[in-house]
Design a protein around this nucleic acid. Structure first.
Length: 504
RNA sequence: GUCCCGUUCGUCUAGCCAGGUUAGGACACCGGGUUUUCAUCCCGGCAACAGGGGUUCGAAUCCCCUACGGGACGCCA
């Protein structure tokens, strides 16, 4: 490793779904490390999954990271000397390297059908073996392979040594050794011609001059594939640093099912970006002097990646709130707090969107804020009796859950879409909309009567909405009218039958 | 199931690499004070080295085993 090589780090999110806290977390340390060493930090969009990637989601990543105060030196929006920074625009490059791998005999085309592979996997699982490709297409001659490729769909797989082990160095953990027998003949090019993550990330990190790959712990077990690809392609591998994963309170990997995970949730619920970043900076890390209030700049100045601790930190909203409070009263001047509050939701734009919903219900100004309150708070208070209303006690939890799943499918978050989702639930459940709605009014606003719900939800946004639904479901659970594990499973099956499969 | 990674108060962590500390700080919680209430603020308290073996005069710290937790095992990233 050449010590004088410039430090270049990257964050490589895939533009699917809402911008995730984990992305900001990884970005933070990548950025701090690059700054500390006078290097560059790059944003690369990993949009190789054509089904799930969207331009809206890509834009959301830009917006969310910028809101959080994460700035990149090179990226799809600002360019740079190593572009393009969107993987979908680099297909020729991947194709070239894939062909090189095939020619050298390090990779091969595979014509197996998904059906065959599913069967194979199922039988291996049944025999308690590690699911692995069986090498069916490995023996095809180059000629036959090339010939069939003209008329048949295929994927390209990388070859993996049949025995021995792979040892690589993780900067925090030391040497990590994994047997090659544990590694599958990974698909590196999909039927649609797009590369998979494993290939694309290696090719891009090489051509983009990435010196340190700082990413989540979830990647440790596929690092041997990456190391091998660097070897096959004749390139030096970067340094690897695997950071611990943010956790839910139950210690599982942070997930939106159990926590707010969208960066926008924190923006919309009224947190300060500098407090959020500060908080993320203390997950698994402490500054050498142990101060607890610090900016991104201060973190970068003294940053020492070796100080990262490896136990997975639990994301604790209570402590984040405490920290946010300290920012409000210690780091900002009162005038600044007013300005920030206005910029948040107390501005003509946002209030102007609420007004049409409230106007007919107003007699004096005093009526406005009580009506709008649920759109300006993180969570409303409600009591369970009001929530359940006239429904059977076992109904609310199910209906809320169904709504949560249905809402996840929404491509747009506007009045019309929301309206049709609830219409559909009403029809499918054979409950008149009129009887269905009070439940949601209470869950969303705390009261059975409120501003028009669909417009309200549209203003609230998907992230705050989801958390409110979940809070209501949880409270029902605590009172004994929730969904048991069994009940949830049954509901999910039933849901799939009547509404179609869930998406994530 | 297989493999990999991890494990200090309920939570975030310092200390570990260069063995000797009354194992420190913060959140939460409990108690007291300031405050016309509440909050803030101040003071105090509770509370941890997962277990077992080694090495050593001495282990949270080094080594091994066990347990527990997490992750990976996709034509997702």
């Amino acid at each position: 490793m050449i010590m004088s090589a410039p430090v270049r780090t990257r964050i490589a999110p895939s533009p699917t779904g809402a911008p995730h806290l984990g992305t900001a977390y990884m970005a933070l340390f990548n950025l701090a490390f690059a700054r500390k060493h006078g290097g560059q930090f790059i944003l690369r969009i990993e949009d190789t999954d054509r089904q799930r990637s969207s331009v809206q989601s890509e834009q959301a990543i830009f917006d969310a990271l910028k809101w959080a105060g994460i700035e990149w030196d090179e990226g799809p929006d600002c360019g740079g000397n190593h572009g393009p920074y969107r993987q979908s625009e680099r297909l020729d490059l991947y194709e070239k390297e894939i062909n090189r791998l095939i020619e050298k005999g390090f990779a091969y085309r595979c014509f197996c059908t998904p059906e065959r592979l599913n069967q194979l996997r199922a039988s291996q699982m049944a025999n308690k073996e590690t699911p692995r490709y069986d090498g069916h297409c490995l023996s095809l001659s180059p000629e036959e392979s090339a010939q069939r490729a003209k008329s048949e769909p295929f994927v390209v797989r990388m070859k993996i040594p049949e025995s021995g082990e792979c040892t690589f160095t993780d900067e925090l953990r030391g040497e990590v050794t994994i047997d090659w027998t544990q590694i599958d003949h990974q698909v590196i090019r999909k039927t649609d011609g797009f590369p998979t993550y494993h290939l694309a990330n290696v090719v891009d990190d090489h051509y983009m001059g990435i010196s340190h790959v700082i990413r989540g712990e979830e990647w440790i077990s596929s690092t041997p594939k990456h190391v091998l690809l660097y070897q096959y392609l004749g390139w030096d591998a970067p340094e690897f640093v695997h950071l611990p994963l943010l956790r839910n309170p139950d210690k599982s990997k942070l997930s939106k099912r159990k926590n707010p995970t969208s960066i926008f949730y924190f923006r919309d619920a009224g947190y300060l970006p500098e407090a959020l970043i500060n908080y993320l900076g203390m997950m698994g890390y402490t500054l050498p002097d142990q101060r607890e209030i610090f900016s991104l700049g201060e973190l970068s100045e003294s940053f020492d990646i070796k100080r990262i601790s490896l136990g997975g930190p639990i994301f604790d909203l209570a402590k984040l709130k405490w920290l946010n409070g300290r920012y409000l009263r210690e780091q900002l001047q009162p005038e600044e707090v007013v300005e920030r509050l206005q910029a948040w939701k107390a501005n003509p734009d946002f209030l102007g969107k609420i007004l049409p919903l409230a106007l007919q219900r107003l007699e004096t100004f005093s009526d406005f804020f009580p009506l709008a309150q649920f759109l300006l708070s993180e969570q409303p208070e409600f009591d369970l009796e009001t929530l359940t209303g006239k429904l059977q006690p076992d109904q609310p939890a199910k209906l809320l859950k169904i709504a949560e799943w249905e809402l996840e499918k929404a491509n747009h978050w506007d009045r019309q879409t929301l309206s049709s989702i609830f219409q559909n639930i009403s029809e499918t459940e054979e409950i008149k909309l009129k009887h269905l709605m009070p439940l949601f009014f209470v869950a969303m606003s705390g009261a059975p009567v409120s501003l028009p719900l669909f417009d309200g939800l549209a203003l609230l946004g998907p992230d705050l909405t989801r958390v409110r639904l979940r809070k209501a479901i949880n409270q029902l659970g605590e009172s004994g009218n929730g969904l048991s594990k069994k009940g949830l499973k049954a509901l999910e099956k039933d849901y799939t039958a009547r509404y179609g499969s869930r998406i994530d």
